[in-house]
């Protein structure tokens, strides 16, 4: 019998079965890791709130109401108002949009570029690997805040530049992790086979090796999501991140929030709680995901 084309195993499984398997995996995850499931739910709620901010928010986040400046939390303004009479709850809801956008963009950029560099470095080995390692060492030693300061000074403030400033320092860390997983994969027979079949380096790296570092990649991704949200809040708080009038959590903690902290503590407390809760949920989910994906931990 002649050797036919390689069979795409996934294609032979009917759509319905595949969906059922997915659901079963999700069910398994929720049952075994309730904390992770809670985290996932909060994450989903956060995303939904961010996406549909314009529908849920009771007020326009930018609308000032000088009749209700620094108002206490009440039925009209659940979380009170700020120094311009803007509704704190609405600003937190819109801030969720910014946080999610920055979080996902940074984590995806940082983890993906890092993974590609790490896997390529492991694949080419030898001099290339050594050189990449050295360059990554340099970036690791570079103070993160200076990198961000420099990027923002060069590109200016604004959401895209903040994303770049936060994603760049993530790359060397992601590269290190992916490289160490990829080192083992490089020795696998299927990589040799792919090389023998005459595939280009790019194809081997992207199609054969990268999918096999998915577990560490997903773990990094979830960890970076939280970190990116924290970094964005810090940069914004320093005046180097997202700038007014974009509603952002870090921005809400700036200036007036500290100035009027004694008379209107809700201005400083609630945005911080929003940051903590969002990052907490991502970390909770990420932790459980790591336990579920990492076979070494699963055995324990």
């Amino acid at each position: 019998m002649a050797i036919g084309r390689p069979v795409d195993v996934a294609a032979e499984i009917p759509e319905a079965t595949r969906r059922r398997r997915w659901l079963a995996a999700v069910g398994e995850f929720c049952r075994q890791r309730p904390l992770g499931a809670i985290g996932a739910i909060v994450v989903v709620v956060n995303i939904v709130v961010g996406v549909s901010a314009n529908v849920i928010a009771p007020y326009d986040p930018l609308a000032t109401d000088y009749g209700a400046m620094l108002a206490r939390p009440s039925a009209a303004h659940w979380l009170g108002t700020d120094a311009f009479g803007r509704d704190v709850l609405s600003r937190i809801i819109y801030g969720s949009r910014t946080a999610m956008l920055v979080g996902f963009a940074c984590a995806l950029l940082g983890a993906t570029i890092g993974a590609v560099i790490g896997v390529a470095s492991a694949y080419f080995a030898g001099k290339v690997d050594l050189l990449v390692q050295r360059v990554m060492d340099i970036f690791l030693a570079f103070p993160l805040i200076i990198l961000a300061l420099a990027v923002v000074s060069i590109l200016g403030t604004g959401i895209v530049n903040v994303i770049v400033a936060i994603a760049i320092p993530m790359i060397p860390r992601a590269a290190l992790v992916s490289r160490s997983s990829a080192l083992a994969i490089r020795e696998m027979p299927y990589v040799d086979a792919a090389r023998a079949a005459g595939f280009r380096h790019r194809r081997i790296i992207l199609r054969h090796m990268l999918p096999n570092v998915m577990a560490p990649y997903l773990i990094m991704l979830t960890a970076y999501l939280g970190q990116a949200i924290l970094a964005e809040a810090s940069l914004t708080f320093l005046g180097l991140g997202v700038s007014e009038p974009t509603p952002a959590w870090g921005l809400m903690l700036r200036g007036a929030a500290v100035q009027f902290a004694e008379s209107a503590p809700w201005m400083a407390v609630f945005p911080g709680l929003a940051i903590s809760l969002a990052v907490f949920a991502f970390n909770l989910f990420g932790d459980s995901l790591r336990d579920a994906l990492d076979p070494r931990l699963r055995a324990q």
Partner: peptide, 26 residues
Amino acid sequence: VRVMSIAGLATPSFWLGIVFILGLLI
């Protein structure tokens, strides 16, 4: 302990600082 430490990772320390100052003040 685990929840406490995950919460520690999630809380921006500058905000915790603000809350400390607020608490002392109030």
